[in-house]
Lab assay of single mutants.
Amino acid sequence: HNGKLCKLKGIAPLQLGKCNITGWLLGNPECDSLLPARSWSYIVETPNSENGACYPGDLIDYEELREQLSSVSSLERFEIFPKESSWPNHTFNGVTVSCSHRGKSSFYRNLLWLTKKGDSYPKLTNSYVNNKGKEVLVLWGVHHPSSSDEQQSLYSNGNAYVSVASSNYNRRFTPEIAARPKVRDQHGRMNYYWTLLEPGDTIIFEATGNLIAPWYAFALSRGFESGIITSNASMHECNTKCQTPQGAINSNLPFQNIHPVTIGECPKYVRSTKLRMVTGLRNIPSIQYRGLFGAIAGFIEGGWTGMIDGWYGYHHQNEQGSGYAADQKSTQNAINGITNKVNSVIEKMNTQFTAVGKEFNNLEKRMENLNKKVDDGFLDIWTYNAELLVLLENERTLDFHDLNVKNLYEKVKSQLKNNAKEIGNGCFEFYHKCDNECMESVRNGTYDYPKYSEESKLNREKIDGVKLESMGVYQILAIYSTVASSLVLLVSLGAISFWMCSNGSLQCRICI
């Protein structure tokens, strides 16, 4: 991952900044910058967002509201009850120091605090018919004063009620008058409520006091790749198909172990950190130390980045220098085999997901714990399936590479015959000098055995068991695999060879 928040398929997220979902939807004055928000790819909250409900109280069923919003990608904020005409018999300019803005008392931008007009609070009834052709999110509140005197001074009615009804919602609220500790300079409380109004449905408000009335509502448009994440990451000019709280993932790998919460087309989250597919040879310690064997393909974004291909070729060293050249036929066979294998694994496992966190309130801790156990169970199954699949494929890959290298080895052996000696570690020792032209003939299969047989015969008789390297004779190393990324691999195959001279070296080696 890149540690950044990015656009998702070209669409920017909605960053709530210092506000949370509650503050944004109710219209906390400190969240005025969010009022123009219309569309987004996903919503970003920060872990310690401080601006929620400015007048103390709870947004009821907040967790369910977050779940609903996680599939919303755009909205239209509109005046559901026009301020100047909807409440002619009531005062609608209630403000509070708890919702101060720029040093002055204020109130929510989407709600109206209705109080008595003169000395009376006549029963009010108002309704709205949803003609938007889509779901409408309606929010309101109920004020709970701290004393009967406060109730009387604001609403005149000691036994007030609030009723809200639609086809799918029907509740009646009565204020709970009680002494409470002071929070944000208030002994009173406000509880906030919401409902989704279906197209064509009607919502009716009736009250004799204590109503925090809707002013603006939201017509919602769903987008199934949307979601809500909690993150401290910063926004950058970048684009992605998959976003996590820790950063964007741009990967076609089937798995990731970065974060379980994802938005967009994302690899499946697994616990494993070692889900690797081999593309090189079986481990040979001396070669492995030099980083030549054991190439791997990573299938977990965050564990290993991208696929690494092994390729086969020849390396030689003689009086004229040293050089490398790919054996294109065996390399292409290996590439085709690995590509098919990788595609097979991805096809089997690479279903892209959006995974969002589930919200539970403080009273639902047991449910949250149960949900976590269920999620953990599914996660263990996914991890096991992934590891088992790759384990089985790896064994076949190792066998496949062994065969490829063996074929190259036999190709060289059949040409050199007794003009060189096998020394048991995949290397041959020449009994004759071999210049670049000679080396090329070994690589392309045109090695002239009779041409060098007499010199080889004489050297075999002279050496008589002495280690060949100390006599200045020449080696050919018969097994060799270097490691390159897919891009470098293609470039390498396009070149005939490249040279690395070893000044004054008397050794001649050709490596497979």
Rank of each mutant, 00 (worst) to 15 (best):
S231Q: 04
M235H: 12
H236E: 14
H236Y: 11
C242P: 06
Q243V: 07
Q243S: 07
P245S: 13
A248L: 04
N250T: 15
L253M: 05
H259D: 14
I263R: 08
I263F: 03
G264A: 03
R271V: 04
K274P: 00
L275R: 01
V278A: 15
I284L: 15
I287P: 05
I287R: 15
I287W: 00
R290A: 04
G291V: 09
G291T: 05
F293D: 01
G294Y: 10
A295Y: 02
F299K: 01
G303Q: 03
W304Q: 02
T305L: 15
W311I: 08
Y312I: 05
H315N: 01
H316Y: 09
A326G: 04
Q328D: 00
T331H: 14
Q332W: 06
N333F: 10
N336K: 12
G337E: 00
T339F: 02
N340P: 01
V342S: 00
S344R: 03
Q352M: 11
Q352N: 03
T354E: 01
N361T: 14
L363A: 03
N385W: 13
A386D: 04
L389E: 15
V390A: 02
V390I: 15
L391M: 10
E393I: 05
R396V: 01
R396F: 04
T397W: 03
D399I: 14
F400T: 08
D402K: 10
L403F: 14
K406I: 01
N419H: 05
A420S: 02
E422Y: 03
F428K: 01
E429Q: 08
E429L: 09
C434M: 06
C438L: 08
T446I: 15
T446F: 06
P450C: 15
K451E: 02
K451L: 15
K451M: 11
S453P: 00
K457G: 14
K457P: 01
L458C: 05
E461R: 15
G465P: 14
S470W: 01
G472V: 02
L487K: 00
L490I: 13
A495D: 06
A495G: 07
S502K: 03
S505K: 04
I510N: 03
C511I: 14
I512A: 13
